[in-house]
């Protein structure tokens, strides 16, 4: 039944949008081909929380994220969004990929890319209505990029690309936002705009799960953190995770002291 609901993209009325657990990962193992990169990972994210996924390079953060979203097939374990499988609540979960996963040379306008976020709400013809376009304009405005709406995608700078991808996620009106390193290589104003949007998102009681690279601001930006080092090495508040032996083992004592 779940599969059918998901296939036809019918909104599942039985889904509660504010259960206690927004995301549950249970015994998840995943990798590429025969190589397992993340093994037996388990953690839960409370509704309304902002959670950082941290870990050294090659620890499996992005692999974990892709497995959670079903972009790569897990070899073991299960994932629950809002107490349901991802297929049943697809429309309530938005994903912001790293900017380099898109070919920005495609002949399209910023407005068109952002409008992709509305696809989950569209009818069988796939055409956008005036309401959808208003939502697109609102999302662009909230990230201060309304003036870019008719620009070709190829004209955007790195920071603008991040804002556009976040606008696309917001226009979907999700309950859970999953982001892969959104703060990497951006200017100060883009960073501030992203933080403002995330604050507003959280104020609505919504959940964000973010792969984060910069250990220096984890405490300032996140409620909780999960340390990934081939598996879930530590979970807790940012202070607890950074004080854990697993953190020292993953990053070394120097990083631990600096953090």
């Amino acid at each position: 039944m779940n599969a059918l609901t998901s296939m036809l993209r019918i909104t599942d009325k039985s889904v509660s949008l504010s259960p206690e657990i927004a995301l549950g990962v249970y015994g998840l193992s995943a990798g590429y081909g025969a190589e397992t990169i993340v093994r037996d990972a388990s953690f839960e994210v409370q509704t309304g929380e902002r959670l950082a996924i941290i870990g050294p390079n090659g620890a499996g953060k992005s692999t974990l994220l892709k497995a959670v979203l079903g972009l790569i097939k897990p070899s073991a374990g299960s994932v629950q969004f809002l107490n349901r499988g991802f297929g049943a609540v697809r429309q309530h979960v938005a994903y912001v990929a790293q900017a380099d996963e898109i070919d920005w040379r495609f002949p399209g306008k910023v407005r068109d890319l952002v409008a992709m976020g509305r696809a989950v709400h569209l009818g069988i013809t796939g055409r956008l209505t005036a309401t959808d376009w208003r939502a697109v304009d609102r999302a662009l405005g909230s990230l201060n990029i309304a003036h870019l709406a008719d620009r070709p995608l190829s004209d955007l700078s790195g920071g603008q690309r991040r804002r556009v991808l976040l606008a696309r996620a917001l226009v979907q009106d999700p309950q859970v936002l999953i982001m892969d390193e959104p703060f990497q290589a951006i200017d100060v104003s883009t960073r501030e705009a992203l933080i403002d949007v995330l604050d507003a998102f959280q104020a609505e009681g919504k959940t964000a799960v973010i792969v984060h690279h910069n250990l220096g601001d984890v405490q300032a930006l996140f409620d909780r953190a999960v340390l990934i080092d081939g598996t879930v090495a530590s979970v807790g508040s940012p202070q607890e995770v950074m004080a854990s032996p697993a953190f020292a083992a993953a990053f070394g004592a120097v990083h631990q002291n600096a953090a």
Partner: peptide, 21 residues
């Protein structure tokens, strides 16, 4: 056109949120 355009602009995203389309 709308489906083709979305699928071409970002195939991963289209596959994630509207897999059937």
């Amino acid at each position: 056109y709308p489906f083709l355009n979305r699928s071409l602009m970002d195939a991963h995203h289209a596959g994630l949120i509207t897999p059937v389309a």
